[in-house]
């Protein structure tokens, strides 16, 4: 158990819980959107922390890279065993990159909707906006 990693996971948990709290309990539409974004950030932090490895390399095959080889000589996949057993886990980083874009996209749509709803109702309170509905 790496204390740094545990601390990072707990921070992510706090972010998620804060986001949930803002999303469920707050009345302001912008605060709800910020809460939704915080949840996404918390999940991203969980993924990044999965990739953490104490003392690991950054996942770039720099000095090990087979730079002079031409593409036609790759008849089989080469193995970079030494690099692979020391580098940090790389898959979660790629997933985080995807999720960041997803978060940005949903954020933009929600902000646009918030602008339109504000122009229609002249209030930011969700309570007043959704009044008279079940």
């Amino acid at each position: 158990m790496e204390p740094f990693q545990v601390g990072s996971f707990l921070t992510a948990g706090v972010l998620i819980v804060t986001g949930l709290w803002a999303l469920l309990m707050m009345d302001n539409i912008l605060k709800k959107i910020i809460g939704a974004n915080l949840i996404g950030d918390g999940v991203n932090l969980v993924l990044i922390t999965i990739g953490y490895r104490p003392g690991g390399f950054i996942p770039e095959v720099m000095h090990h890279f087979h730079a002079t080889a031409t593409p036609s000589s790759y008849s089989h996949l080469l193995e970079f065993g030494e690099f692979a057993s020391n580098a940090s886990y790389s898959l979660p980083f790629a997933l985080v990159l995807t999720n960041i874009v997803i978060g940005a996209s949903t954020l933009s749509v929600m902000l646009a909707l918030a602008v339109v709803l504000y122009n229609k109702y002249h209030t930011l309170s969700v309570h007043k906006m959704f009044e008279g509905e079940d």
Binding site: I16, A36, G40, L95, L113
Partner: peptide, 23 residues
């Protein structure tokens, strides 16, 4: 607009929960 906004808000919760499960 209101229906879509609700759908998006809860969509982020469910998306985050699916992703956390995947993680």
């Amino acid at each position: 607009f209101k229906a879509a906004f609700k759908y998006m808000i809860f969509g982020t919760i469910s998306g985050a929960s699916i992703l956390l499960g995947i993680a």
